[in-house]
């Protein structure tokens, strides 16, 4: 197909959720999955070379057109987004759930050393965390995991896309050098 990229681009344009390859495949019955994948990666490069205002982001197991961070100043003037408010305690809890999922509340609290029930509820209200089920141990505690919205918000391809422990360690070393005390 000659115009496969244009077709996919039009689909990306109207979709408000990250578009999965399988979804594109349903629309483009005649195209091979490989063809779609290739078209997507070519498009990614094209947006980059063209330095257009938006780019094709691989996020939450799908693809989505997103504006480049450079233009946030002007976009914010237009739509005035509500500021992202997350306490460091909430970010910590979210990070623990993201890295250690599936996880029960007791394990989260073991790491943080402090009651985390309210924060978890809050994260659930923000749709960043969900209940996956119950663990088959006494008390049948709830098991928590992160949501698709979590991936979308933090611009992550999938859970494997989370920075690895090694990268984190490097970051930590860096932080120690720059800020040995306070």
């Amino acid at each position: 197909m000659d115009n496969i990229k244009n077709i996919i681009e039009s689909l990306l344009f109207v979709s408000d959720k990250p578009l999965k390859i399988e979804q594109i495949k349903i629309v483009l019955e005649e195209a091979e999955t490989k063809e779609i994948r290739n078209a997507l990666s070519e498009m990614m490069e094209e947006y980059d070379t063209r330095k257009s205002s938006f780019y094709l982001s691989e996020v939450a197991n799908g693809f989505q057109l997103r504006t480049r961070p450079e233009y946030k100043k002007w976009i914010s003037r237009l739509i005035q987004p509500s500021p992202f408010r997350m306490s460091s305690a909430a970010m910590e809890t979210l990070a623990i759930i993201a890295y250690r999922q599936p996880i029960i509340r007791a394990d989260i609290e073991h790491i943080r050393g402090v009651d985390s029930g309210g924060i978890i509820r809050n994260l659930m209200e923000k749709k960043l965390v969900r209940v996956l089920g119950r663990k088959d141990i006494p008390g049948r505690p709830l098991i928590y995991s992160t949501t698709k919205h979590f991936l979308e918000l933090f611009n992550l391809k999938n859970l494997k896309d989370l920075p690895s422990v090694k990268e984190i360690a490097e970051l930590k070393d860096l932080a120690n050098i720059e800020d040995p005390t306070e």
Partner: peptide
């Protein structure tokens, strides 16, 4: 990270 709705935006 580039947060959706803060740093990067999508068509709503």
């Amino acid at each position: 990270r580039n947060l959706l709705g803060q740093d990067t935006f999508i068509r709503k």
